[in-house]
Structure formats: C-alpha cells, structure tokens
Design a protein around this nucleic acid. Structure first.
Lengths: 267, 267
DNA sequence: TGCTTCATTCGGCATTGTCGAACCAAGGAG
DNA sequence: CTCCTTGGTTCGACAATGCCGAATGAAGCA
C-alpha cells in the first residue's frame, strides 16, 4: 500500500535528531535492519539531492540544507502559524511572557511558533519542538477538547513519565484535570514538565469544529500561578478567540468550547 | 545510480515553496511528468509518514509537521550555526543592525541564521532563506574566495537578473567587484538586491581552508555606506575571525583570506 | 442537471530495488 | 610499523516491487 523504498528513505531521515545529529551507514543499517548496501543506496540518493550531506572527513551523514529550506516553508505554510503569528506576538508584548503556539499531532504537540517579549537567540526553539501532551498546558488544552474516545486512545499508547514532583502520572488524575480544564476554559501546568516553569494554555479550533492546536503563556510559577492568573487567562482567551476567528470559526472560544463539549456528550 | 522512486519523492517535496504552499495530484503530475497514479503513490506514502498532510476538504497536499521538525533539527545541526550563533547575536546588539549567516550551496546562499537587535516576529526568515550570490554582500563574500574555476562554473550556469538599478549584471563587472572584495577583505552590497537595503559581508572558512559561508550586516544605505562603513566592517571582520576560530581555523580572517588567495594563484 | 476536472484504485508487465558478498580505506591495537 | 577490525562503497543476479494505463467515483462548475 505504500512505496517501500520511499518509506525506508523517510524512516532513515527520521533517525536524525538533536541527540543524533550525524549517523554512519553502519548505524543506519543497524537501526533500520536494512542491509548496508541498501541503506547506502537510500542515503546516497538523498545526499545527491541535498537532503543529506556527508562530512568529507568522517564520511558520516547529517541533514542537509534542503531539509532546512523545506522546514522553513512548512513553518510558513501552516495555517495555524499564519493566523496566529500576529496575535501571539501582541500577547507576548502585552504580558511580557513567552507565548507558544503548537499543533496537535496525534500523540504529542509540535510547537510551531514562539514569541518572545525580548530579543534572544535566533533559533525558534530551545528545547526542541515536540512536547508531551499530558504534562503541558498547551497539550492539556487540546486533550480537554478532543473526543473522549481519542483521549482513551491517547492514554492507551502513552506512558506518563513523571518529570517533576508535580507531573500528573495517573490516568484518573489526568481525566479529572481535563474536566477542570473544560470548566474554566483553560489549562494549567504547575511545573509539571520543568521545574520553575508554569503555563496557561487555551485551545484553538479549526473552522469552529475540531481542535487544531493550542496557545500558551509560559513563565515563573510566581508570575503565572499568582493572583494575576485570572487576568492572564482572560488575555489568553481573548487572543485565542481572535485566532479562532481567523481560522474561520466563531469568535467566542467559550461558545466553541461549549459546543465541542455538548457535541461530545451527545455521542 | 540513484533510487528512482526516492529521487522522485524528493522531487515532489521540492515542488512545495512559499509560492506554492499546497498542490493537488494533477499539478504534481504535470510538473514532474509522472502519471497521476504514480504521483499519488509517492504522495500517499509521504502523507502516511507525516511528511505531507492532506487537507480533508480540498484534498490538496501541503508540507507536514515532520518536515518542519526535521528542519529545526537541521538548523541546529549545522556546524556553522552552532559556532556562529553567539557571536552573530553579540554583533547584532553592538551594531544595532540585522546580522545574517549563510551557507554556500553551490550556486546560491542559504541563510541559516538571522539575529535581530530588537524583538520581532518569530519566523526566522521573512524573505525566504535563499539569496542570490551575485547581488548580495553575503554571496559576494563567498564568491571572492572560492576558486577561480568555481566562479567560472557559477557564472556559466547563472543568469544575472538586475533586480534594481544597482545590480551588477555583467560578468566582467562582477569579477572586478570580487577583486576589490579580496583587496579590502569584505564585500559590499549597494542596494543591489533590494532598494533601501545595503550590506557588508565577510567570508567564513572551514578549518582554515575552504569557504563555508559568510556573515553580513544589513541596514539602510545611510547607515551602512556612510562614514562608519570602516568601523562596521572592522566589527564584522572581528566577529568573522572569532567564528573562524571556532570552526577550527586560524583566528585571523585576513591571514586566511590571504592564504586562500595565494593558494589560488599558485594553480 | 450534465459536464469537466480531479483524486484514487486496480491489475499486469518489466523495470527496478534489494540482498549478499566482495573490495578499499582508515583507524586502532599490539 | 603492521595486522586486524570496522565501516563505507561497489557490483551482479534474482525476483520482488514499483510503474504505467485505464477505469472508477466524487466533487465542483456552468
């Protein structure tokens, strides 16, 4: 049903990561179970087209400029990014906090946009673009509004590692947290992923129907979980409404959320 | 010599760009000359793996999250980016100008890093990551220090479009400009690509030998080409030296440039 | 409602990718 | 310095695999 060699080529590309920036043919061969000659053929083809590059000295391979270019195109292409870019940045200025926008990808969140209140390094992401759903506000905001069935599926294939003492690691507790998230309309991350960082997250809907992703505010627990939580959450929801509107949905997040929830209950 | 189906798959990926963010099977089929069924097979495989995504409504395809993720990894992997990130940002603060770092890719420059002095949108590139070599300081800084043979090859396969009145569009004139670039040690772009933007560019060498890329300062012609040009160029060259050092070469750009030039003359 | 365009599926042929083994080159140990 | 190991690369033969062309179904448009 799928073209074998292409499938394998993409699998090889997927081996490259922050932790494994360069690989040799032998490693690739071992990781994939392919014969060295076969792996070499795939790699050579991709290197020829600029999707991989080979270090002349070590003869090892790493991701090429072509991948980088396409990544930029992908980032600019994403509808969510196009719609959310402006509002996210305004929110960042207003609150003087880091704002992140992420897309739901089946079992985790891919952060596709980050707005900083102050100038900083030029890389858009310092901790890698993928974050777990169960221990982040940006993830729980989505989990709270996808179907119950989807949440069950998600839970069945996810193991919840406790990164800090506050990480929710029980399925029941997570479901309870999602319930509270639905009630108040936004999700909270109380240092559940990283010590010293708390977040508020709100969902973003696609054409007023499905959840497409989420937006979050990140900062110190004092800033986020202090007395100003309500105000910050209101600002966040206002921004989410605006983005929702641009995404072709109703301007009112709360209304969409309510619709989403009631539709769920009808099932 | 190369795996056909993989080659074709990569060709399909290459069709996506800022101007063509989403494509249908028919368009892909026409652009590549492949049968619709064949194109569909390739696209389906890539969509399955998350490298493409299909809009459920229009059934058209666009780049997927996987590509985005790999793009980030590629950006962080690039040795040049790792080495140049810090110094480039410092330079941006000091000069209050936009600093860009780019890699030489055979016939044009791929901008892989941008440092802004003030907070800005979160996309790393606003004008697309690829810039022509012949009409940018960042490109001419590289052209001036690659082999004469390589410059000839480059010229033979490049047509020089005059984007502004100042664009160098003659081969002789470009060669003369490159000669001056070698003499003074840095390249100048006098609104040759875009009206109202001028740049100073300096080359970066890999292990003190080959040119790997370049770094540039961008700003208004008044700022860049005014009386402070010398000072700015000195700052730029100092930064380039620093990066050179990190790249395993000699700390002195001028020395490396001289070596590069004399080596060239020996040929 | 009828037409056109497009995405998608299917089967048969032969092209094409795969495997295994052999060949070099480089780096490390003795 | 030499032997040995490890890893990257090439080659040939078999058959599995992807490719083409045509047919189907669906959707948008006039």
């Amino acid at each position: 049903m799928a073209i074998q060699s292409v499938e394998r080529a993409l699998q090889v590309l997927g081996l490259f990561s922050q932790h494994h920036p360069d690989l040799g043919i032998a490693e690739i061969s071992r990781s994939t179970g392919l014969a060295p000659g076969t792996a070499h053929g795939l790699v050579r083809t991709m290197a020829q087209k600029g999707f991989l590059r080979q270090d002349p000295r070590s003869r090892r391979y790493s991701l090429g400029l072509r991948i980088y270019e396409l990544g930029i195109v992908a980032a600019e292409t994403l509808e969510l990014n196009q719609r959310a870019g402006g509002p996210a940045h305004q929110l960042s200025r207003k609150t003087q906090l880091v704002v992140r926008v992420a897309t739901w990808d089946g079992d985790s969140m891919v952060v596709t946009l980050t707005a900083h209140p102050r100038p900083r390094g030029s890389f858009p992401h310092q901790i890698g673009p993928r974050v777990h759903a169960y221990c982040s506000a940006i993830g729980k905001a989505v989990l709270a509004f996808i179907g119950k069935k989807d949440v069950q599926d998600y839970l069945s294939r996810t193991s919840m590692t406790p990164f800090t003492g506050s990480t929710i690691s029980g399925k029941k507790e997570l479901l309870a947290d999602l319930e509270r998230t639905r009630e108040r309309g936004y999700a909270l991350d109380r240092e559940e992923a990283v010590h010293g960082i708390a977040c508020i997250g709100a969902p973003i809907f696609e054409r007023g129907q499905q959840v497409a992703g989420a937006i979050s505010l990140s900062g110190s627990p004092a800033r986020i979980l202090g007395e100003k939580t309500g105000e910050l959450a209101e600002e966040l929801l206002k921004t989410a409404s605006e983005i929702n509107c641009y995404m072709g949905g109703f301007p009112q997040v709360r209304a969409v959320m309510a619709a989403s929830v009631s539709q769920e209950h009808r099932k």
